[in-house]
Design a protein around this nucleic acid. Sequence first.
DNA 1: TCAAATTCATTCGTATGCAAATGATATCAA
DNA 2: TTGATATCATTTGCATACGAATGAATTTGA
Lengths: 151, 151
Amino acid sequence: MSGGELKLVEVDEPDDHDYRLQEQVGFILRKAHQRHVSIFASQIGDLTPPQFAALAKLHDVGETSQNQLGTLIAMDAATVKGVIDRLKARGLVDLTKHEVDKRRLLVNLTPEGREAIERLIPLARAITQETLAPLTAKEAATFMRLLAKLA
Amino acid sequence: MSGGELKLVEVDEPDDHDYRLQEQVGFILRKAHQRHVSIFASQIGDLTPPQFAALAKLHDVGETSQNQLGTLIAMDAATVKGVIDRLKARGLVDLTKHEVDKRRLLVNLTPEGREAIERLIPLARAITQETLAPLTAKEAATFMRLLAKLA
DNA sequence: TCAAATTCATTCGTATGCAAATGATATCAA
DNA sequence: TTGATATCATTTGCATACGAATGAATTTGA
């Protein structure tokens, strides 16, 4: 040891070894989303969350164009097309051309689609509850408030 | 009006009209995740969050099997294979067979992979910051604590 | 020891999710 | 009016994401 020297070091400049993937918001967000999708699948096996969202929104607002529906449920045009195509193939929605604006494709619930979404809404409530189950009621309220600010 | 009758109704049993998709945790979780991925892409254009996660974890723990890596970054075997294949195609990782256990495929960072992840970690810190920017420091801490309980 | 169970990796099929390009239609503005 | 813009939908290509089936190798347990 040649002892006695002092070194200046940047103590608050984190180096690479400080980066902990497991603590990053993006990583945990992805895991939380995975868990929710898994809970969803266990309660509603024959419909995906995006498909459910499309039906629920149609039930809420009635007839809309495919693009408009996409905006309402936060899906881009390409994604919503796939979702609607699959719902149509199962007879849960039907598609008609807009009489005036020939660019638009109008989406409607079929009677089967309406029956399905009304039957599934109680299950969706249970899914929300189960997803939030690790939190107390107060924590859940706080979490939802903060999550909404991030989204 | 034949007036005067009373009806029993379930006032605390919510009907279907009460279901608001936009307020469900799953829907908002999906949107928050979308926003994060978008922020990530704006800061790190040539790597996806899963690819980054794989490199960051390899940097952290060193050589591991493909399956083990998947466990560490919360990806199933099929998904992690695709991610690793693409990283290998870009020369950021290399793959070798385990000498003893011939089932295992060992994954390692290449020098290029190490250079890349060390260069990107500061950007990843910025991504985390920007994702949490809508919250105050105190809110962010609370949010992270609750999110971790959900994930 | 050896048959059963487990683990690791791969493949297939299906479903988001988004960027970019394209075509048809509608709207705006000079 | 018409040329530039904007909107709606579609298509292609790429990247997760996961269930299920399969095959190879290892571990377990009777």
